[in-house]
């Protein structure tokens, strides 16, 4: 196998709170130095709490644009405020000011300003980190500034850095904790993946969101498997999910019953495979299964 052929495995869930990050972190510990970890769930980045990265390398990240107004040049004509559809240029204390929270970076104001007082600048939206985690493995992760938004661009950046590091270090796997929802960041989390692991729970909204996110996966023709977490909370809903998996030819990887081991481990800053409980062997078994599936796919 050429060193460039890396198995990229993305962990996804349509909705929050299903245990996606706990499971992705457990896989990361099991993969150890074989993998580079990419945390693309930047809206609620939690993986670092279990993997203990050292935040060794950091870089500012810019996304989208922001209008910046030079008061020295401004002639207070108000044309910018007139065209702004986002009410982002209020007139306060005798001057026009840009409200960064409201500015959508469309650049219309810059185009109509007769005195060239407005320029569009890249908007700093957070930091991207490269870290060594407690297993000795490498992790790429990000932190958004307050009220900044995740984007396809940020996810692509995190994944690109992870891929470069995986290539350089001859790693076999990239484990991606994917973004929530079904928008642009999810598409970006998925692209280039060899296999998707869906983590869901047997609730009405769990199935509803699973179906929505699977539409996106199908579009990109990526093979997927599913873990039903807290499967015993509602047996009927669990069965319904399994029927969906069967119909769509999604691998049913496992049913994990509700187990306080996940939160007990979390409180110690550990993943579920680092403490003693029946979940340890089960999650190890799932990871083994995923390795077999992805290696087989790769050699075809």
């Amino acid at each position: 196998m050429s060193s460039e052929r890396i198995n990229e495995i993305v962990i996804l869930s349509g909705k929050g709170g299903t245990g996606k990050t706990s499971i992705a972190a457990a896989f990361s510990v099991l993969a150890g130095e074989e993998a580079v970890i990419a945390d693309c769930d930047v809206d609620a980045a939690n993986m670092h709490l279990l993997l203990k990265p050292d935040f060794a390398g950091s870089l500012d990240f810019f996304s989208g644009e922001l209008a910046v107004l030079n008061q020295d040049v401004c002639i207070r004509c108000g044309k910018c405020a007139d065209v702004c559809r986002f009410n982002a240029i209020p007139f306060i204390e005798n001057q026009y000011t840009i409200s960064p929270l409201d500015c959508e970076g469309c650049g219309y104001c810059e185009k109509v300003c007769p005195s060239f007082a407005i320029v569009m600048k890249e908007r700093k939206s957070g930091k991207v980190y490269t870290s060594t985690i407690k297993t000795g493995g490498i992790m790429v992760h990000a932190r958004l500034d307050i009220a900044a938004e995740n984007s396809g661009k940020l996810v692509a950046k995190v994944k690109k850095d992870a891929k470069d590091l995986a290539k350089a270090g001859n790693k076999e796997y990239i484990i991606v904790d994917g973004s929530p929802g079904i928008g642009c960041p999810v598409v970006s989390s998925l692209s280039g993946a060899n296999y998707v692991v869906l983590v869901t729970e047997p609730t009405m909204s769990g199935l509803h969101d699973l179906i929505r996110v699977y539409e996106v996966i199908k579009r990109f023709r990526i093979k997927a498997g599913c873990i039903i977490n807290k499967s015993d909370v509602n047996e009927a809903q669990s069965r319904e999910i399994k029927e969906f998996l069967l119909a769509e030819q999604i691998d049913h990887l496992a049913d994990i019953p509700y187990d306080s081991a996940f939160s007990s481990a979390m409180i110690e800053g550990k993943t579920v495979v680092e403490i003693q409980s029946p979940r340890k062997a089960q999650v190890e078994e799932i990871w083994k299964q995923i390795k077999i599936i992805t290696n087989k796919n790769n050699t075809i």
Binding site: T21, A44, N46, L49, L101, I146, A147, S263, M266, I267, G269
Partner: peptide, 18 residues
Amino acid sequence: TPFGLNDLRLAVETMKEI
């Protein structure tokens, strides 16, 4: 939980901002 606390901190900061 640690996840809950981490997310809460971020939410509190956002609300402070507004």
